[in-house]
Simulated scan of single mutants.
Amino acid sequence: MKKLLTFLFALLLMAPMAEVQAQNKALEKALKKEFKEKKKEFKKGGWKIYGTSRSEDVVLLKHFDKLMELDEDGVEIVGIASNFKSKNVGVQMAYNNAVVSYAQRAGGQVKGRVASDISGDGTDAEGEFEHFYAAYEREVEKEIKGELELSFSVIRDKGDGTFELQSFFIASESAATKARIRAYENAMKESQAAQKYAGKISEFIKEGVAGE
Rank of each mutant, 00 (worst) to 15 (best):
R138E: 10
R138I: 10
R138N: 13
E139S: 00
E139P: 00
E141T: 12
E141K: 11
E143F: 00
E143S: 04
I144D: 03
K145H: 12
K145P: 01
G146F: 05
L148W: 01
L148S: 05
E149W: 06
E149G: 02
L150W: 09
F152A: 08
F152M: 05
F152K: 04
V154Q: 07
V154Y: 05
V154W: 00
I155L: 04
I155K: 00
D157V: 13
D157L: 06
D157F: 02
G159C: 10
G159M: 06
D160H: 02
D160C: 10
D160G: 13
D160F: 05
D160K: 10
G161N: 09
T162I: 08
T162H: 01
T162V: 00
E164R: 02
E164K: 01
E164S: 06
Q166N: 15
S167Q: 02
S167F: 01
F168A: 12
F168D: 15
F168V: 11
A171Y: 08
S172D: 14
S172C: 06
E173V: 06
E173C: 03
S174I: 07
S174G: 11
A175F: 12
A175Q: 14
A176Q: 11
A176K: 00
T177D: 05
T177M: 07
T177W: 03
K178Y: 09
K178L: 04
K178N: 12
A179C: 04
A179K: 05
A179Q: 03
R180C: 01
R180K: 14
I181V: 12
I181D: 14
R182A: 10
R182E: 09
R182Y: 05
R182V: 09
R182H: 15
A183P: 06
E185R: 06
N186M: 06
N186R: 09
A187P: 10
M188C: 15
K189F: 09
E190L: 14
S191H: 08
Q192F: 06
Q192R: 10
Q192V: 06
A193G: 08
A194K: 04
A194T: 00
Q195N: 07
Q195V: 11
Q195F: 14
G199D: 15
K200I: 03
I201C: 07
I201N: 05
F204H: 07
F204K: 02
F204V: 15
F204L: 08
I205V: 08
I205G: 06
I205W: 05
I205M: 09
I205S: 04
K206I: 07
K206T: 10
G211V: 08
G211I: 03
G211Q: 11
